[in-house]
């Protein structure tokens, strides 16, 4: 068995390019690109897993010289990983399709609620009462708020209600 599986320069460059491209695609807004990025990253990590076993050698099938045999474990792990990546790819593909059907395009939208909070101009959401809120953005689908009937603070302070 090989003791030092130092990854050679060619393979290191390949890994670097694959990861970089995968990351680059992953950071885009188009879901299809993200998906392709995931596939590329999957290839990259499977390749890396296989390389972690050591440099090229004979297939690990009994009959060859064990000393010249490739490390079988990373192969088995990579095989499992390939299947899993495949499963995830198909799922993401379906999700992308579904998104396309529902939204009409396949770009990842920003979160509406986050944007609303980000757009608040430091208007604190008051703690004590439900009634002194800053007005919501108009694009809030549920903005037809119910008017509240709050009583007079002064009346509260004089404790009229305690009278039986």
């Amino acid at each position: 068995m090989i003791i030092i599986p130092t990854i050679n320069l060619t393979m290191a460059a390949t890994i670097a390019v694959l990861y970089a491209v995968g990351f680059y695609l992953l950071l885009s807004r188009s879901l299809m690109r993200v998906l392709i990025g995931v596939v590329v990253l999957g290839h990259a990590s499977n390749l890396l897993l296989q390389l972690a076993g050591g440099p090229p050698a004979r297939p690990p099938i009994i009959g060859t010289d064990p000393a010249a045999m490739a490390d079988p474990l990373p192969q088995a792990l990579a095989l499992t990983a390939i299947v899993i990546t495949f499963a995830l790819t198909t799922f993401l593909l379906a999700l992308g399709y579904r998104s396309f059907v529902l939204v009409g395009h396949d770009e990842v939208q920003d979160d509406v609620e986050d944007r609303r909070i980000g757009g608040q101009k430091a208007d604190p959401v008051a703690l004590e009462s439900a009634d002194d809120d800053p007005p919501d953005d108009s694009d809030d689908p549920s903005s037809d708020r119910i008017a509240s009937t709050d009583d007079d603070v002064e009346a509260a302070a004089t404790g009229e209600r305690e009278r039986p």
Binding site: I7, S45, L48, L49, L51, L88, L95, V103, V108
Partner: peptide
């Protein structure tokens, strides 16, 4: 409205999975 949330979740989790796989490769190396 929900599909975006699903996207965010799935994509980020996938990234973590792939990084995990990468880390395993490193550990094995």
């Amino acid at each position: 409205t929900r599909v975006r949330a699903g996207m965010t979740y799935v994509t980020v989790s996938l990234m973590s999975s792939l990084l995990f796989l990468t880390a395993i490769a490193m550990v094995y190396a």
